[in-house]
Nucleic acid binder design. Sequence first.
RNA 1: GGGUCGGUGGCAGAGCGGUCAAAUGCAUCAGACUGUAAAUCUGACGUCUUCGGACUUCGGGGGUUCGAUUCCCUCCCGGCCCA
Length: 382
Amino acid sequence: MNIFQEGKARIKKVKTKSGELETPFFMPDATRGFVKSLSGNDLEEAGVVPMVVNTYHLFLQPGMDLIKKSGDIHKFMNWKGPLLSDSGGYQVFSLIHKNPKMGKITDDGVEFRSPLSGKKHYITPEKAIQIQFDLGVDMMVCLDDPPPNSDTKEKIEAAVDRTLAWAERCMMEYKKQIKERKIEKENRPLIFCVIQGGEYLDLRKKCVDGLIEIGLSVKGGPVMSWDGYGFGARHIDSEGNFLAEVLKYTAGLIPENSLRFALGVGTPEDIVRCVEFGWDMFDCVIPTREARHGRIFLWKSDDLKGEFYETVNISNSKFKDDFNSIDEKCNCQLCKNHSRAYLHHIFRSGDPLAMRLISMHNLKFYMELIEKIKNNLKMSVK
RNA sequence: GGGUCGGUGGCAGAGCGGUCAAAUGCAUCAGACUGUAAAUCUGACGUCUUCGGACUUCGGGGGUUCGAUUCCCUCCCGGCCCA
């Protein structure tokens, strides 16, 4: 009676310099070095352990000089748990894809204008890796070329080729940095490559094959291959449908002993499905962004089948005089202390407290989701 | 008492002869959000509708005009100034 009986779901230990993790795990997005509206204590209270920060955002603001001055990103944020930095490729590329005037992509690297200052910057695969070493994160990601899924197959294949070329340069730079910085084996950050290929299975395969080859061919240093492989580009089509087939197929191509990171996934049901396909790691803005927009995640049933959860928008007028708890069974600050009517009032008054309380609740929901997934997995092992 | 400016949709506030059911903002009612340019964005917001339109509106009443929220008269109400 568990949902992972037939799948490739797994529990796997992951050692990082900031502690051991167990897959599957979910990382909230602390893009700019903080999860919007939440303090470190809030995050701990919600059960958060690892988080994702973004190279691109931190590089632009507050800038690497400042972060280095503070020590590293852990010290700057005062977060002891493992941190993964995303390369920023996704951000720079979506910036340029939305407005070509914002930058230029060449085989060497990406030139872009800071949307904050208008200042020009230039990032190469090597530089992306150097910055991530400077950040002092536990897990880092190669600079990749993520085209929109709507691009032609030719363009997506070109992006695969560039992603491969850049992955090789990233791996070489990674090994160089380990050596130069004299980083010991147990302290080295894990390195992830990214798989592109859009909705095309053959391109996904080409990309994974190429990445495996790169992992084996770049010599030197303590690591023989990639620690993990990320699923790049959006994992939903233009209609918002989950690309289950592509996710399933791609997971199957990744070596068993490597981590599988489904970047940007996703809704609770998408995470469950991805775990079933063999994906180990997730990050997504949904629980926090939607919290700031008033949406609350609520459990409907304990198993993870069918519609096991629902969402509610606290701004809806039907909650105006609903004095019930948000969720009777939940022991987060919000559910323990406040009624729907009160939260509705805070939210409608526009106070950030509402965003904070809902963000904490939603993150706790996501953490519970992971726990439930693990319980299911452990049951299936028995 | 005299003068003067004004009364527009839930509120604020444009419009000053036709393209006005009436800009814009707020409020209201929904929806979206997936490696965070997102405390953001989209839609609805007089009534009815077979979604093509139809009907009643811009303080009240009366005029001018083919046609008035827009011009004139009058009444009511409010602000300011002078007595």
